[in-house]
Amino acid sequence: MTPVAHSISTADRASPPSLRARARHRHRLTHATRPSSRSPLQRRFARLGWLFASPALLVILAVTVFPILFSVIMSVSNVDVSGDGFRLDGLTGSNYSVLMGSDRWVHALVFTLLYTVGTVAVEVVLGTAVALVLERLTTGRGWMMALLLLPWSMITVISGELWNYIYNGVYGVLSVVLEPVLGHSVNVLGTPLLAGAAMGVADVWKTTPFVAIIVLAGLVMLPREVTEAARVDGASGWTIFWRVRLPLLRPTLAIAVLFRILQAFGVFDLPFVLTGGGPGNSTESLAMLGWRAMFQDLKFGPGAAVATSTAAIVLIGCLAFLKVFRSQVGNEEIGT
């Protein structure tokens, strides 16, 4: 343990049990001094707040909560499709049986998991590196941030078409550059492995700025005293980042990772525009599989089961991630 880490851990930080004890003590004091009931004016302001928030809550209920609940109901129902539409005819578990026995669903799940883990890991590393560079800029930081945000602000369909032009095997920029070197044209989107990697590159290019901005906000909020004390004690730049700043950045990185997992696991527009799920079904995500089942094959029950299972997997993953994150809050050891 470095001298600065030893001084921080012994003089400025209390052990986790004492922190929890003091938190419980403050909680008891707060509840002891809090009035037992609110005044009529406070209740009136609360009712007024709910009144003003009710239009937004109704919109959220109509466009978010109701479709989710209806999708769950549809996934456990017999759905009869006719020329007049569709109707629900009794409950059944056959939709999930078809789902679990489908090799296509398993492949889409594996691809979505690998795509999420790979892109999020690369984006966190690159975003942190970009944030460190932006933090050191004294002039022109605003212009650099504006240029950095251009890929992220671009609509995914447009960026997908842009990368589709780059990857095209006939007139694409990548093929023109690599053909003199390799001696033949390169059809990146025509090979399953290369098509998945090409999708990952396009996703990293677009969303790394999002991670960089979040990490930069966390870097700006870090206490300068800790870094200056480590520098005075003779710690190198890498040691300061790895043993001092990175542990303090855990909450910020957790937020960035959580947002990116939610976005990457539900990816639809990028493979839809860039590869169409191909070649074959090699780049078909869970979102694309559910869309094809419902709107191309008109299998509303299995399609709703795909959507519901995807939402359940994301929910379980996020809850597990938050549980691990909460268990580490307050237990960071600088310099370990």
Rank of each mutant, 00 (worst) to 15 (best):
V79M: 13
P247M: 05
W242P: 04
V176M: 11
L194V: 10
G234S: 06
I158G: 04
H107V: 03
R13A: 09
G142E: 12
G142M: 11
F295V: 01
H6E: 15
I73C: 03
S18F: 10
T119L: 04
G303E: 02
V72E: 01
L41G: 13
H184K: 15
V79H: 02
M144L: 12
A311K: 00
S75L: 10
G196F: 05
P192G: 11
S94Q: 05
L69P: 00
R24E: 09
A108S: 14
P40K: 05
W291Q: 03
G127Q: 05
R28Q: 14
E179P: 08
D269G: 01
G317E: 04
M1D: 14
T275R: 07
G317L: 05
S7C: 04
S82E: 09
I313L: 13
P271Y: 06
P251M: 12
F272W: 12
V226I: 12
R260V: 03
T310F: 02
R47G: 11
G266I: 01
L51D: 07
I213Y: 00
A53V: 07
V329W: 09
L216M: 06
H184V: 08
V329F: 03
L69M: 09
L137T: 15
L322E: 05
L315H: 00
H27S: 11
R250T: 10
K299N: 00
V81L: 08
L29W: 06
D84P: 01
T283V: 06
V72F: 14
A108R: 04
R13M: 08
R28D: 11
V306N: 00
T191A: 14
A23S: 10
W242H: 10
T139M: 06
S285N: 04
S236M: 09
R28K: 14
V157H: 13
I158N: 06
G335F: 05
N78Y: 07
T10P: 03
A5S: 14
L137Q: 15
V177H: 09
A131G: 09
Y171L: 13
P151T: 11
L29Q: 11
G200M: 15
R292P: 00
L41E: 13
V204I: 15
Y96K: 14
L222T: 05
V181P: 01
V215A: 04
D269T: 13
I334K: 05
T112D: 04
P35T: 08
F300S: 00
V204N: 03
V133R: 14
M74K: 02
T92R: 12
V329R: 07
T227A: 12
T275D: 11
A146W: 02
I334D: 06
S282W: 01
I313S: 02
T119Y: 01
V257N: 07
V120K: 07
T208A: 06
T33V: 09
P247F: 09
V201Q: 08
T112C: 15
V122M: 07
L126F: 15
R22L: 14
I213D: 01
F86L: 13
I60G: 00
L193C: 12
I261C: 12
L262H: 02
A212N: 13
M221H: 05
N164C: 04
K299T: 00
D233N: 06
F66L: 13
P67E: 06
L289V: 08
F265I: 02
V201Y: 09
G83T: 08
R326P: 00
H184C: 02
V177R: 12
M144H: 14
K323Y: 12
G301H: 08
A197I: 15
G218K: 06
P3F: 10
